[in-house]
Design a protein around this nucleic acid. Structure first.
Length: 446
DNA sequence: TCTGCTGGCACCTTTGAAGGGA
DNA sequence: ATCCCTTCAAAGGTGCCAGCAG
């Protein structure tokens, strides 16, 4: 049986620069992903984004919305989002700034949010921005709704995955490409800690319009403000703000101000600041990520259920982890959905993609998959891996879930400043070992 | 006492059904 | 009969806040 470590060796070199002919030529396409509303995200990030998590699940604001290009119009893709810890710490809000409060708690079950439109042709994903509005975050580890489970007072960032697959269960043979945007990192909280974040949320979230100053709750806010300074300057060291500004700045300006991020000091401590990146490289920050796909890559699947590759085994082989920036778009990895039972799904599968005009496939019913996974979870050594059907009456959110690692190792990525990240601008071929620390499918099998 | 979490609340937007007119 | 537009109520998303638990 080939282990994931073996697989990694397949990626150890840089992707071939030449463009081979043949079917693999498809894989040579450069998929690009842009974050929508980057200015808004940066405005939040400069202060220190906080996301409320509740037992019943809370949407993100700003919510994740991306533009995608470079897909094959007639090929089908699946879009996924998951959350990975920024580091191995728990934080507390103390004296208007975030401080480390100890080691992170063991990670809750790792879940992946499947975009409800998945699978859909590349043309569908590219014709308009893709919104993950309905993604919800929860702190309920027993959540049955498929929301993404996070720990309060911990920092996370979303990862976006694009998988070329005709259906959910051909994912195992597919290449997926991962994108992250540094300014989307956030601290999960059960109640807002930083009043500046509260104000930003109220100002920008239409659902919170009732709390705006001009609203009927003006007095309410004034009362609150009189009790404590609402906008204490410098919620973190080094940040001197005049006023929380609406996102009107140029991208470049926002990038320059990144050093004022609440996490800036931390980054400076953890990361070598000597970066060859100049202003040009900085400007590449977050505007676009180019991901060349190596055609030499061989698909891989697990042959043995219940023997999923463990994160620790992968970690051991990662010698290049430290000091690497992680402005990821990662080298492609393999989505490892076991193939057993997949035959059952043939009836549900949408046929092969065809170029030319075609109706967008309707939502696929995956509720049967949920039953399947439950049935399989009884196997010895097999950890249940739940798939929540996007359109199931019970599970309205499309999420793949499964038990995560006992604890993610402290990820080195996103501890680098953007300058460093921009240097790499998305090319991380050869760091698959580290990548495998954050497996898309929680290295669990049905 | 402090810190973090929970549930109820008021206020708001979104969504979809119903009805009327062209 | 069909389509389009408007209205309206229900559903659901917000932050606030008092109270609770560890």
């Amino acid at each position: 049986m080939q282990s994931i470590r073996d697989l990694k060796s397949n990626f150890s070199g840089p992707p071939p620069s030449s463009t081979p002919a043949g079917p693999d030529a498809y894989l040579q396409s450069n998929i690009r992903m842009n974050l929508e509303d980057p200015e808004l995200w940066k405005t939040f990030h400069e202060i220190g984004t906080e996301m409320i998590i509740t037992k019943s699940g809370r949407r993100m604001f700003p919510h994740c919305k991306v533009n995608i290009s470079g897909l094959i119009p007639c090929a089908k893709y699946i879009l996924l989002v998951d959350m990975v810890p920024e580091d191995g710490f728990r934080y507390k809000w103390n004296k208007e700034k975030w401080e480390v409060a100890g080691k992170a708690e063991p990670q809750p079950p790792c879940r992946t949010y499947l975009h409800p439109d998945s699978p859909a042709p590349g043309s569908h994903w590219m014709k308009q921005s893709v919104s993950f509005l309905k993604l919800k975050l929860t702190n309920n580890t027993l959540d049955q709704h498929g929301h993404i489970i996070l720990h309060s007072m911990h920092r996370y960032h979303p990862r976006f995955h694009i998988v070329q697959a005709d259906d959910l269960f051909s994912v195992r043979w597919s290449v997926f490409q991962t994108f992250t945007f540094p300014e989307t990192s956030f601290t999960a909280v059960t109640a807002y800690q930083n009043t500046k974040i509260t104000k930003l949320k109220i100002d920008h979230n239409p659902f919170a319009k009732g709390f705006r100053d001009e609203g009927t709750n003006k007095k309410r806010l004034e009362d609150r403000a009189s009790g404590s300074p609402v906008f204490c300057p410098s919620s973190f060291e080094g940040f001197e703000e005049e006023e929380v500004e609406l996102p009107k700045k140029k991208v470049g300006d926002a990038i320059k101000e990144e050093r004022y991020s609440p996490w800036g000091a931390e980054r400076e401590n953890n990361v070598a600041t000597s970066s060859p990146a100049g202003a040009d490289a900085r400007e590449m920050y977050n505007t676009e990520q180019l991901v060349p796909t190596p055609a030499s890559y061989q698909p891989y699947k697990f042959h043995e259920y219940g023997k999923s590759p463990s994160p620790s085994s992968s970690v051991g082989s990662s010698a290049s982890g430290s000091g690497r920036s992680s402005f990821e778009s990662r080298a492609p990895d393999v989505a490892t959905v076991p193939d057993h039972e997949s035959s059952k799904l043939r009836a549900h599968e949408i046929g092969p993609s065809h170029c030319g005009p075609q109706a967008l496939p309707g939502p696929q019913e995956y509720s049967g998959v949920l039953n399947m996974s439950v049935a399989q979870s009884g196997k010895p050594g097999v950890i249940g891996h739940h798939i929540y059907g996007p359109y199931s009456s019970e599970q309205h959110l499309g999420q793949w879930s499964g038990p995560g690692p006992a604890q993610y190792p402290p990820p080195p990525h996103l501890t680098a400043d953007y300058t460093t990240q921009a240097v790499h601008h998305g090319y991380h071929h050869g760091n698959v070992a580290e990548w495998s620390q954050y497996p898309l499918f929680s290295y669990s099998c049905w």
